[in-house]
Simulated scan of single mutants.
Amino acid sequence: AKSSFLTRGTMKQAGSMIYVAVVCPKDSKMLNYMPKIPGVEFLVANDIKTFQSYPKIKSTEAVLWIPPGDTKVLGELWSTIDAKWIHSFFAGVDGLADFVKEKKLAQSSVPLTNGRGAFSSSLAEYAMATILHFNKQIPRIQENSRKGKWDKFVMSTVKGKTIGLIGFGDIAKATAKLARAFGMKVLAVRRSPGKGTGDGLADEVVGFEDRLSVFASADFVVSVLPGTSETLNFCGEKEFDAMKRTGVFINIGRGVTVDEAALCKALDAKKIVGAALDVFHTEPLPESSPLWKRENVLITAHNADFTEDYAEQGWRVWQENYNAARSGKTMVTPVQKELGY
């Protein structure tokens, strides 16, 4: 998507002030890393009254949503300003689905961009860490260390093993790079397999309809799917039944893409060895969830990408898109609004 925004006018030429509405609680730590850019003024609020109190709100052309900013305010802003660009600090834009639908943003020429690429490397590291956790039997090693037990068991290797990536966007490609460095075979499932193997990062790519072949072949299945109506409970009973009994399931995409009841059923029946989960249908994960307190399940609080440089990386991607918009170039991380990612 070009950033010329022809149907709703162009962003102001160099030399004039650009106003950016930032929908975010004013106590958010993300604001501590807000860049200082000549000619740019950020108007921060999490309610429409505060936004309307800014004298320059009518001149605002860009909107930045930083979760947990109130998405209802986005809709109210849409009716207040002549927005020419909207950006999601997160890579996932499922939180904006209602706004996109209600305001018919998919039919609008106003571009929506996201934080794609800002957090991919940390998520890829998490995926490989959990793979190594199960492959090297880290819990067994820790238990032996605690008990003072000399246990000379056969050590597995990931070299030669197969990783199956469910979804093949930026996070999956970053994971594929690390997996290949370990000597793993890479299979991928993507909505449009015709888009290719990511410059050879994947050894084989199949479409959604053929996903069971990847679940069946992979030693480690890593879901990086976005949360859309098409991917709801995408990883379910059939998929887990297809996996190897030695297989491990990992989710670093969106929680709604996994049927958690089916996953628990597969774990109870020992159809797979274990799972590592960073995202869930309901967050925080309820204390009553049967996923808790399992020795073969690793659970993190949707913080696999919450790194020391999280804020800086998020702002970096925003600024790259801002620079593209100012210079009339193609936006760096455009979202396919009709698809939701």
Score class of each variant (00 low, 15 high):
192 S>M: 08
204 E>Q: 13
16 S>A: 12
213 S>Y: 07
309 D>H: 14
8 R>G: 04
114 N>K: 09
297 V>Y: 03
263 L>R: 02
1 A>Y: 03
321 N>K: 05
331 M>S: 09
189 V>C: 11
52 Q>V: 05
40 V>R: 15
130 T>F: 01
170 D>E: 15
31 L>D: 06
288 S>E: 14
224 V>H: 06
98 D>H: 13
267 L>R: 06
1 A>K: 06
225 L>F: 08
179 A>P: 11
305 D>P: 01
178 L>M: 12
223 S>M: 11
53 S>G: 07
230 E>V: 09
301 A>N: 12
305 D>R: 02
267 L>Y: 10
261 A>V: 15
194 G>N: 14
105 L>N: 03
182 F>C: 10
141 I>W: 04
52 Q>M: 11
242 A>R: 04
315 W>C: 04
149 K>C: 07
138 I>A: 03
261 A>G: 06
147 K>H: 00
212 L>V: 02
243 M>F: 07
161 K>I: 07
18 I>S: 08
212 L>F: 00
1 A>H: 10
58 K>I: 06
325 A>L: 15
291 L>D: 06
108 S>V: 07
104 K>N: 15
266 A>L: 10
193 P>E: 14
263 L>A: 03
84 K>F: 01
20 V>M: 13
259 D>C: 08
327 S>E: 15
282 T>L: 08
111 P>S: 01
330 T>A: 13
172 A>Y: 14
159 K>M: 13
339 L>I: 11
25 P>V: 00
75 G>E: 03
80 T>P: 01
297 V>W: 03
207 G>Y: 10
252 I>M: 09
336 Q>S: 12
272 I>V: 13
169 G>N: 13
248 V>T: 06
222 V>F: 05
112 L>V: 12
328 G>H: 03
220 F>D: 09
329 K>V: 02
264 C>I: 14
166 I>D: 09
81 I>D: 00
216 A>M: 08
43 L>K: 08
233 N>A: 11
326 R>S: 10
58 K>Q: 13
142 Q>K: 14
302 H>Y: 07
